[in-house]
Design a protein around this nucleic acid. Structure first.
Lengths: 339, 339
DNA sequence: CTGAAACATGAAAACGATGCCGGTAAGGGT
DNA sequence: ACCCTTACCGGCATCGTTTTCATGTTTCAG
């Protein structure tokens, strides 16, 4: 690694002080035109680049955003893209750390970023995370923090997330409207906020339609296709087996789909299926899967914008919330009634 | 943002010099046990964290790796996961920048990371990148650099990539073995190394099997499902239309699949299809798609390991290459002969 | 011709930590 | 009483940049 040219090199070469060179480079007043020109010319020639580390140390800001996410699946990658785009535009660099759905990794990442002195945090928690000391620590240190997608409720920071209750409501109501009578839900990890919201939307919609809730038809499982497959198989072997499944992620829906097909049931005739996220794959499968679009890219952009606003304002933004409205995309796996 | 406790605060409180505090914290000799204890106790109490910026400035290293990738699709995300895992383990943080297949963005990212003073670069070029000044600049500055996946040939740095020729060979030979006679290729962007390698493997295999090459059966297009769909449609409307397509990515294969289905052709009976990357989706589609597994996670890990080795050795590693061997996964879209 | 304003530059502190070098005091050996 | 070692600690420079304050020189009005 070669030594970079510094302001000192220029100063020495031109028999100037570092202060003058610094001023000249930033077009400050109080520098004669000739020196300014000379300095700039030499800087150009020596390919001078200001040392960001020194600046960061001085100004106590790094122009870096720490982003902590549980994984890099399609949805998260799309959100990160949104964050990245806005951040780049604003001159910020993003450090993305995956916690891989592990609480330990999430804590480790937080620590690392914390003493990397990022200017702030954009966080979506792992499915294992049930205790929030590490998040609160960020807050205690008065470091800007925004939560997105998988947010936590009992903590007072800006949040951007999907209206998951509404998303589940849309999907459930649709299944009901299509004439499915016994709808089960693959509800994801039990302690996760989005799981509970989507489950709540599901239950609430059943109630509104005066449909009795069968507790056996609520199955929790990790975001994992294999588990979903097993869970769905179990559902299908029940006495009063369901005639539709609402899965709170497309991955789960796909697992369920495999089980449904294997049982020889035809969608949408014998069985209905709806997922969540509207991953591109849902359109391509046979049958294509009804799913809830969550506008991940927009969530990402909104998150970054909110974060930047928080960074630059003095106002208290801790109770700001942006709730994105989902949209149901109806496909073959559940469309029985064509209008 | 609150001011962090510094070594000075501790020194002042304990009426010690900063040097002594520094030594005490690092368990250096030359510090009495009592002072050591006192310092550590106070450090604990005040939640002292060494300021990484100051250290980086002093030592001229940031413990950060700049990773530049063309996008965040399934394969890249998997590779990044591999890189991340190894880097984290070794105490490095990763800054991932997506160029979004844009040459301009790639250059911008390079500049940003360059003056963020990362310790080195791990790069996979965008499909637009045809001129490599920005990459060479990294090299000129003697900053460690490793290329992976989409590598460049005329540049002397360590490289980790898939044996793309072999991958294409496997897929093509398989299609031939299954009795397909007129095999076309969806060959990706024209200037991209992996495109050309896979195309070369394809052509070479046809030759080895004494099959004449129809130039019209080589179609270049962006890595984009829609383009692939259009290209495939065109192929299918030719006079002597092909009876199989080898697509150099699964996304392209999917686009082709849609066109094939739409034309009423049955796979594998009327038409053969093979893709590349072995994305999970290929297993799930109907028909499931034959594809070349490229071990993306392993490539990521190997890349990071190579990078770390380069960082810590004095040896010249510029001609090191790791070539990963692909594996063909045969599925319904091309399996005509069951053995 | 003097004084002040205007202009151009330099010196030094600051950001936080490390590491070399040197200094003091205590203790041991002669 | 003298010297030498050893243990412990402080001072200072350093990394690269900005910024405040001070200094020096010129110019022009009175």
């Amino acid at each position: 690694m070669e030594r970079q040219t510094t302001i000192k090199d220029i100063a020495l070469a031109l028999r100037l002080s570092t202060s003058t060179v610094s001023r000249a480079l930033r077009d400050a007043a109080d520098v004669s035109i000739e020196t300014r020109k000379a300095v700039k010319a030499l800087a150009e020639e020596l390919d001078y680049q200001p040392n960001k580390l020194a600046l960061s140390l001085l100004k106590n800001q790094t122009n870096t955003i720490g982003v902590i996410i549980p994984n890099l699946d399609y949805v998260m990658a799309t959100m990160v893209k949104g964050i990245d785009e806005v951040a780049l535009e604003a001159g910020y660099t993003v450090m993305v750390c995956q916690s891989d759905e592990s609480f330990g990794r999430e804590i480790l990442n937080t620590k690392r970023l914390l003493d990397s002195l990022v200017d702030g945090f954009i966080v979506s928690v792992s499915s294992e995370t049930m205790v929030y000391e590490h998040i609160k620590k960020i807050q205690t240190k008065k470091i800007p923090l925004v939560l997105f997608d998988r947010v936590i409720n009992n903590i007072n920071v800006p949040k951007i997330f999907l209206d998951n209750v509404e998303g589940a409501r849309l999907a459930t109501q649709h299944l009901i409207d299509q004439g499915y009578k016994r709808i089960a839900i693959l509800a994801g990890p039990e302690n996760l906020g989005i799981s509970n919201d989507r489950k709540a939307g599901f239950i609430q919609t059943l109630k509104q339609n005066k449909i009795a809730l069968d507790k056996n038809h609520i199955i929790h499982c990790d975001f994992n296709q294999e588990y979903a497959y097993i869970a769905a198989k179990e559902l299908l072997s029940m006495n009063k087996r369901p005639d539709a499944i609402f899965a709170i992620s497309d991955r789960l829906a796909i697992g369920a789909m495999l089980a449904i097909k294997e049982a020889g049931l035809k969608m949408p005739k014998d069985f209905g299926l709806a997922g969540f996220n509207n991953e591109p794959i849902t359109k391509l499968l046979t049958p294509s899967i009804t799913s809830v679009e969550m506008f991940a890219f927009d969530i990402g952009k909104a998150t970054a914008k909110m974060f930047l606003e928080m960074l630059h304002t003095d106002e208290d933004m801790s109770d700001k919330e942006i709730v994105i409205k989902p949209k149901l995309v109806i496909r073959e796996s559940s469309r029985r009634i064509s209008e």
